[in-house]
Amino acid sequence: MDYALQTRNLAKNFGGFTATNNVSLNIEAGARHALIGPNGAGKTTLINLLTGFLEPTAGRVILQGEDVTRLGQHQRVKRGLARTFQINRLFADLTVLESVTMAVNERLGVGARFWKPVGAHHQAVDEAVALLDSLRLLDVAHATTRSLAYGKQRLIEIALALAMKPRVLLLDEPAAGVPTTESRELFESIAALPRDVTILLIEHDMDLVFRFADRISVLVGGALLTHGTPEVIASDPKVREVYLGEAICA
């Protein structure tokens, strides 16, 4: 089996508190994998460990067969791992087009060019424009990020990750803060990504999760409770117990 992303006995302690507890996770190449669990289960922390945003207390992270535990974030990005943040982390004073062009520049390896103007790097600009078009952001391309509503900003968050043309994409509650009508569109564009892109999705909306995912892992108290196909997860009594009162419909 080909794995896009794996962890081996991954652990993270904040002081005496264990946020990630001995997690060994295998994400198959091309999977639509969902990571679910109650608030504070350690989902975001796990993403932070996978991307190198945080250093693990113990354990290893393996990206497409390569141990990347010691690599910095930008080195993992270069190897095809991109993410979005649960809470927007954007460039308030840049325009939407500038932000996305900046990201494309980095992927194309022209981010350190210091002589020709940004606008003269046609390949990057054209690609950024096409990406904004696909996310229906063209009409706000020249607006500054700070001038947009949170829901629109959320799309920039995703555009920045897509600009990396990731092999593996980690989405931390991408629809959080997006109006329901727009969140459907958002998931359509995520679902429309090429099948060979591996996606790990954190999402609280179980309808969305079960429509989207072909694999689900359940995280509770920092540890993996169980994992499997949506059918298996939906009928798992342990999961039902965790989500007491919440409807799980397969």
């Binding site: 910095g72 930008h74 982390r89 460039f91 308030a92 840049l94 062009t101």
Partner: peptide
């Protein structure tokens, strides 16, 4: 442009 990005949000830059 990347310097402006760093000044505006240094934590985001490695992620792109």
């Amino acid at each position: 442009l990347s310097l402006k990005g760093i000044r505006l949000n240094v934590a985001r830059m490695p992620a792109i």
